[in-house]
Design a binder for these strands. Sequence first.
RNA 1: GUGGCUGUAGCUCAGUCGGUUAGAGCACCAGAUUGUGGAUCUGGGGGUCGUGGGUUCAAUCCCCAUCAGCCACCCCA
Length: 414
Amino acid sequence: MAKLQPVRGTHDLLPAQARGHRHVVETARAVAARYCYDTIDTPIFEFTEVFKRTLGETSDVVSKEMYSFEDKGGDSITLRPEGTAGVVRAVMSGGLAQDLPLKYFYAGPMFRYERPQKGRQRQFHQVGVELLGVPEPSGDVEIIALGAQILEELGLLTDTKLELNTLGDSESRASYRRALVDYFGEHRAELSADSQHRLDRNPLRILDSKDPGDSEIVAVAPRFADHLTVEAADFFAAVCAGLDDLGIAYTLTPTLVRGLDYYCHTAFEFTTTALGAQGTVMAGGRYDGLMEIMGGPPTPGVGWAAGIERLAMMSGDTPPPPRPFALIPVGEDAVRRATPLAHHLRRAGITVDLAHRGNLSRRMKRANKTRARAAILLGEDELQRNAATLRDLDSGDQVEVSLDDLEARLAQFR
RNA sequence: GUGGCUGUAGCUCAGUCGGUUAGAGCACCAGAUUGUGGAUCUGGGGGUCGUGGGUUCAAUCCCCAUCAGCCACCCCA
């Protein structure tokens, strides 16, 4: 502490960045609303158990990335590392599962104890959507289409690539997992240390290893396609067909996997090459088993989460704040009358920046810096005539207007 | 968590082969212009040279530690 700096991996969102984040969130929220996904907000911390249960004791997130602490009542609390667990918990707590399907949008901070890097922080922000109670592949298609449309409206769709894979149903996965464990087990000694570790924890990840020695072994490993049940294959085909119908392009990526057991069928990621190693900008999939793991009724679910920082970084400059009118009083009498006038105009819905200090020149400079559309000069002379000088700061033209007409004149600038 | 690179003004960066008061551009403030901005000119403020320790007559520079950022891995948004 003591140092005047934020804790590692956290950042202030200064106005320009805050605006960038808001732009991402508001676009996402607006698009989601068009799909009838309504905003839900859950606490940023939960009982640790909520995440342990849903993410699995052995997952990386739970085993090394959680911000957990004991509160004064002795309960173990964890700052949420992701959004789905909290939403599903809320659905159960609130008894909402009786009214399926549910369509939710959320946005907010998430926390993960990781080594920071560009596009990877300890406190970061996500937007996400969840669709609960829809077992049909059209649900997966809707979720992906929603994500794609958000990216499109942010102007980022062309900078990303949609990668798609199926994890099959539990039968397919169990069968494939057995085959992989058998196969890699025979080659255990030849695998990299990382992959030997993965063999015990999450054998699917070995397929995706960056170790050159591993890739030879991976090349002739059993293929998931040979273990897919007919039902799972049909489901995936339906998702692909649905995306085709919408003209949403995707790439099949057999190595795209999910660490957690409750994931099934569709897994997808929108990725980019613009962000270094942090290529994933939006990731999601189907999690039919999740609700049950939490002790609820079996309820299908699909959803995704996207990193706001990553999206904001990609979208570059964001729209500036609205241009104000600069109200500039000159002289004591005018200063006294300026605040009530500003108050009046603001109540009428007009954006007004009141120049509090400095001489006229100084205040004009400030007006210019705030990108003011026009300056309202309130001077002694004009006040005697119940008027003000209205100067268009783009053209430099200025006219005297009666204070009674001011509001109407300002409206013409829109 | 592992390995590596970096850290000088609000920002982007010079610089000192260790040696008096550490520089530039942009930004900021003031004046030229005491009722008129954007351009220009002039002047000004602002730095414990990330922090702590060590070596030295002397450290922003060399050494160690630490903090932070970045890069790769791990993993992910």
